[in-house]
Every structure is written in structure tokens, then in C-alpha cells.
Design a protein around this nucleic acid. Structure first.
Ligand SMILES: [Mg+2]
Ligand SMILES: [Mg+2]
Lengths: 363, 363
DNA sequence: GCAATGTTTATAAACATTGAT
DNA sequence: GAATCAATGTTTATAAACATT
């Protein structure tokens, strides 16, 4: 920590909502490895994405290859291409197309390919033998509900076979994004959106009962399942209306799904300093942050709690104290280090709607 | 840091040589994002892998699917299957086979598939149309040598088209490994070793002149290219001899490609304490570690240097001092915290061959 | 301006310890 | 009281953004 002078309250750092792991690991143990993991990430933070390279290349539209194979930029995922493969295409053609595409961009090029089986010729992932697309139909709430209170029942009837996210390994580079924008690949975007939705469902498809060997991780652990899907759904619905101007607007998205510009350390200080005695239990810290920054309640992966704990342990400024009776342990801020930061010192809370702040009047 | 009592010298932690990112990010900027990234990882650390679940399943041998597709456990990489696909197989069969295999193991199953094109029927990746396997032939040192001093010239004539590492995304889980053991899939292991070599080469295949758009990251930055290939080559050659007993033996592999069980913090202490004045420049710390732990010279990703710097900054025990003339900055160990650890306190260095230790007698 | 060095934050993970059934 | 399991706490690793030299 080093107690360097003038640490910024508002994080400037934090670029990239980083692409994160792929196959990753561990079961559904604790907050980490949340079921949300490994989905193509992106986290919906459109802001913070549009900075660097103009890169005049823009060679990212639809591209046709032998055997009816088409490769299109993924409409939202950076560095990703969707490869539509006719069912009658031979493996050799597939490999050649991928190879060609891979060579074309070299190290700078996209490094993920998602293979989908297009019907027989072109239109891609529409009606294909092995699946049925329920697409927009309402959740129906069947499938082993009664689990948690509302653990997104709409993710269940998956469309298994046809869509598989393959991750293709180009050597390196990624700063040099291929600038996947809404403009390119516009023509197929609706179809692809469907596919993508499915793919992402599939990505976070838990044990839908289709796997015999999975008999343990479905309990409830820490898996609140960061309801991101619901957001996704609303997102899609909203996107169907304006399409153009609502890119990185400032309405609902911002207040709920946008990550606050404060570091964990700052937020913990906000939380603790918001109390009378300047001390707070871990659980209350969680709650305070969720109440004041909906991002963590709704869209952040469960691992954010791990990060909170990590910060509490790591930084010397946070010291753990035990209540008089020795029952409860509180986190406090070392007096020498406490700048008495509070949220409203750095942010006048307009009037979002979360001002009630059930501070849990710590015992 | 907290100066907790009795910090272990030998790391017990460090399980998983973690599967890491997939698409990851950034260009070849500094040590991070090394070109080695995203290759199937695994890092060769077989030890530390064989702990948990006995898992009586053992359904991991060779398996045949329609259209001549075969799926075999990867002989060394855990959680990975090699899918041998005849060139005449249709995409539908491929997807079905993968789907079936995926379902079979469910969430617990392997989450990576490597697709290779087998000749036309079975024997897998042997003689295939688009490539030629030099296999054991000596490096020959042709191809654009005169680069660095010896930047693995043998990696060049790659076998491009036929082998592609695809990463297949099973939803979650990984703790429940499929227990990939040397025993299963024994029959094909030699063939697969060849394939694997190529695949991994391809995985870190840099810009071999085949990509037009890559015109900048090839400079020299920090990209020493973690010569893992050379190791791999020797590996293959060595594997051709014993095959059975040399599985996770203790000979060459261990001393070079196996990660030492010491934390960065410990290694930095070893380095600094190995000097007279108990101080060392960053660069010399790098060098000392590389000299004493070949892993970091040869197989670690370039990001390890980032980690070194991170540790130096993070831990209060490491304090930076400036030489008398104010020119050079040395890293020292805070006296209160210095347990005077040295490498030979914890490890009698048999007689590996790296004892000369050009300590760079810091100016 | 660039590369090396240094600092800080974020995330994931392994594992230990404590608390509650 | 032991066995389990969940919550909490600590530490290491890695990647990244950014600052400073
Ligand atoms: Mg602390
Ligand atoms: Mg330090």
C-alpha cells in the first residue's frame, strides 16, 4: 500500500472490462467462478471500450469462403468472428477458411471464432436439424424451478447442439482490436443476436439435467447468478427500439449496470465511514455497496465479494476488530489512514432512488 | 503483507497452473501479454496435478463416433481431448460427436477439445495432405537466423493448416477433472505427441512472415519468446525412448520446465540475500532468478517480470534505495523483515549445472 | 519519445480459520 | 462433541493501467 500521497478517489485506471478467462476452473464453490464466468464476458460496459485505435483497416464485414462458409464479425464481442458453416461443408474447407482468415489478419486479427452450423447454404443459424429456437418466447418457468427465489428460469430450455462456442487461438495481440462496431455486419446482426443469446446461455448453461455426472454444484452456494441475463433481455428489447442513438446513453444502463468509478478500497471506506462508530461487518459492507452501487447487486460477477475481502485483508488501513463480547468482528479504518471519505464527498447523489440506505445499525 | 508469522518458504498454495485467459488482450506491449499467452497453457507442471478426486469414472479412453471421428484424451494436458476428424467427415457429424462427448461428461467433463484432421480414416494426424512432419530431424538452423543469439531457430518451418487448437467451452467446473492419466490413450500417445507438438507450435506461431498485417510487434520489446518450443522438441525426442516410465519423472523436465515451489517474494529474497551488500537492481534480480530457476528463462511467460516488479512494490519488506551518486536504484530488504533467506537454505542444489551464477557484481 | 522501472488496482484462486448446523 | 459446510480472512499469482525515471 505504501500510503502514497494523494491517491485518487475517482479511479482513472480501470480501463478494459477485461475479457477474462475462458474455460477457467473450479466448481461453483464460492463467489469466484460464478456461473456467470466464462461467458463471452464483455459485461455490457460499452463505455470504456471506445478509446484507442482508429485503425483504418475495417476489413471486418461479411466474408465468403469456399463450401459456403461465411465469416462475419461478431456484432458485439470484440475480436470475435462468427463462422457460419453449412452442414455439408467438409472439414478441410473449414480449416482452410479459418486458416485463411487467421492469416489475413495475422497476429493483430481476431482470435476467437464461434462456429455455428448454418442450415445448408447461407442464412446462418436459422432452422437447423438439431435444434429449435424458442427465441423470444416467455420463460414459462418450467424446468426445476423452486430453486432460489427467482434464479432466472428462462435460461433453461437450451438449444444445445447447434451452437458451440469454439475459441480459436491466434498467437497474440489484442490491443489492436478489429474495431467491431455495430455498423459492420449490420445485415446479419439480428440473426446473430439470436445465436449469440443462445451461445451465451449455453455458456452459462449449468447442469440442466442433461449431464449425468454433475451431481453437486447445483446447490446454492454463493451463486446468486448475477441476473445479468435479465438485463440482457431488457437490453435486447430496448435495443429493438432506437438502435442508433442509444449506444452509450445515460439512462437506465448507467445507473444500474455501469460500474462506479471508485476502487474497492474507496468503496469500503465509504461504507465504513458512513456509520456512527466507523466500523462495519463484512456482510454489511457487502450490503452497503450493493445498495449504493446497483452494479454490484445486479451485474457484477459474484467474485466482487472476494475482491472486497481481498482488499480488507490486503490494505493495512483496514483493521479487524472484535466486538466487546468477542462475538462479532468488525472492520475499521486505521485512524492514521482514515481520510474520512464518504460517498457524498465525491458524489452528490442526484436522487437516484437508493437513498434510504438501511444501514443495518450495527449491533 | 501484514508480516504474518511463519510464512511458508515452500509454497503449498499454487495449485492449478491456471487455464488463464483465452482471447485476452493488449498487443505485444511489455512483458505481459507475451506471445506465449493463450497457447493451451498447462505449462508442463505435471506435479501438483494429481491430488483430488479418484473419480471412478475413467471413461476417458479412445472413443469412436460416426463418420470416423475419434476422440481421445490428450496424453498430457488435463481436461483436454483430441478430436481426430477424417477429412471427409461432415460438419454435422463433428458437431454431433462433440455434443455427445460434451453431454457425456456434463459439466464435469473436459472443457477443451483440440481438433485435428486425420488422414481419411483413422490413424490420426499422421501423413495428411497439407503438411509434412519433420518430427525428429535436427533443427537445421536455417530460416531467418541471425536474430538474437539463439532464438530457437527450429520453430520456423511450421505445419500450418492442419492443426488448429480449438477451445471448447463447457459451462463450468473444472475441479472435477477427468483424471487424464498416461495410462488411458496409451495407444495413440506417440502419434498424438507429434500432433501436439505441432499444435503448440502453431499456438505460439508468431508472425512467420505469413501475415501481412502484422507490422509492428515483432521488434523486440520484452518478447523474448519463452523458448518453450525448444523444450518441446527435446521433449518429443526424449519421449520417443522410454515412453512409459518417463511420465512425470524427475530428469530434465523437472529441472528446466518445472516451476519452482517458491513464491516470487521468496525468490526475490533469495536473490537479494545472495549478494554481499544485500541489495540488487531489478535487472539483476531478473537475471539471478533466470539463472537459478530455468523455468523463468525458458518456459514462463514474459509476464513473470511484471510479477517481480509487482512484488517489489507491493511488499513493504522490499525497499528501494538509491546509490550514493543517485544513479542506480537498488532493491533491498527491510532489516526488520529480513530473515536472510537464501536458496541453499531451502534447497541443496544437487549439481544441476547452473552454479556459476554470474552475480553481476553490482556496481 | 521511448523503454525500463515502479505503483496501484482488479481478479481469480488456494487455502486457512471461524461460525453455524 | 464430531462432522460438515458456509462465511470469513489471508496470501499468492497474474494482468493491466498508468506514473515515473
Ligand atoms: Mg487489512
Ligand atoms: Mg516495496
Amino acid at each position: 500500500m505504501r500510503t502514497s500521497p494523494r491517491r485518487p478517489l475517482i479511479l482513472k485506471r480501470r480501463k478494459l472490462t477485461l475479457p477474462q478467462k475462458d474455460a477457467s476452473s473450479t466448481s461453483a464453490r464460492d463467489e469466484n467462478s460464478g456461473q456467470d464466468d466464462k461467458t463471452p464476458k464483455q459485461e455490457h460496459s460499452q463505455e470504456e471500450q471506445h478509446n484507442s485505435q482508429p485503425r483504418g483497416k475495417m476489413d471486418c464485414g461479411l466474408q465468403k469462403f469456399p463450401a459456403g462458409i461465411k465469416i462475419i464479425d461478431h456484432p458485439t464481442m470484440p475480436n470475435t468472428q462468427v463462422v457460419a458453416i453449412p452442414t455439408n461443408a467438409d472439414i478441410q474447407s473449414i480449416i482452410e477458411a479459418l486458416t485463411a482468415k487467421g492469416k489475413e489478419c495475422g497476429n493483430n486479427g481476431p482470435n476467437k471464432f464461434i462456429l455455428i452450423s448454418s442450415g445448408g447454404t447461407s442464412r446462418s443459424a436459422g432452422p437447423t436439424p438439431l435444434q429449435h429456437l424458442p427465441s423470444e418466447k416467455k420463460p414459462s418457468a418450467a424446468t426445476k424451478a423452486a430453486d432460489g427465489q427467482e434464479r432466472d428460469k428462462n435460461v433453461r430450455q437450451t438449444h444445445v447442439c447447434n451452437l458451440y462456442p469454439f475459441f480459436f487461438f491466434c498467437p497474440d495481440r489484442q490491443t489492436e482490436r478489429c474495431e467491431v462496431s455495430q455498423s459492420s455486419g449490420e445485415t446479419m446482426s439480428s440473426v446473430l443476436d439470436n445465436s449469440l443469446t443462445n451461445i451465451q446461455w449455453l455458456g452459462k448453461m449449468r447442469s440442466d439435467g442433461l449431464s449425468p455426472c454433475s451431481v453437486k454444484q447445483d446447490t446454492e452456494k454463493e451463486n446468486q447468478m448475477p441476473l445479468q441475463e435479465r438485463i440482457k433481455v431488457k437490453d435486447a428489447a430496448a435495443a429493438a427500439i432506437p438502435t442508433a442513438a442509444a449506444a452509450s446513453s445515460s439512462s437506465w444502463q448507467d445507473s444500474v449496470s455501469e460500474r462506479p468509478p471508485y476502487s474497492y478500497m474507496a468503496m469500503i471506506q465509504f461504507a465504513i465511514n458512513s456509520t456512527e462508530k466507523k466500523r462495519m461487518t463484512l456482510k454489511d459492507i457487502y450490503t452497503w455497496i450493493e445498495d449504493h452501487f446497483p452494479y454490484f447487486k445486479h451485474v457484477a460477477k459474484p467474485g466482487w465479494k472476494n475482491s472486497i475481502r481481498h482488499n480488507l485483508s490486503l490494505h493495512d488501513m483496514f483493521v479487524r476488530e472484535t466486538s466487546a463480547n468477542g462475538k462479532i468482528s468488525f472492520w475499521t479504518i486505521h485512524p492514521d489512514a482514515n481520510r474520512c471519505l464518504t460517498l457524498d464527498q465525491v458524489f452528490k447523489p442526484l436522487d437516484l432512488g437508493s437513498p434510504t440506505s438501511p444501514e443495518h445499525s450495527e449491533s
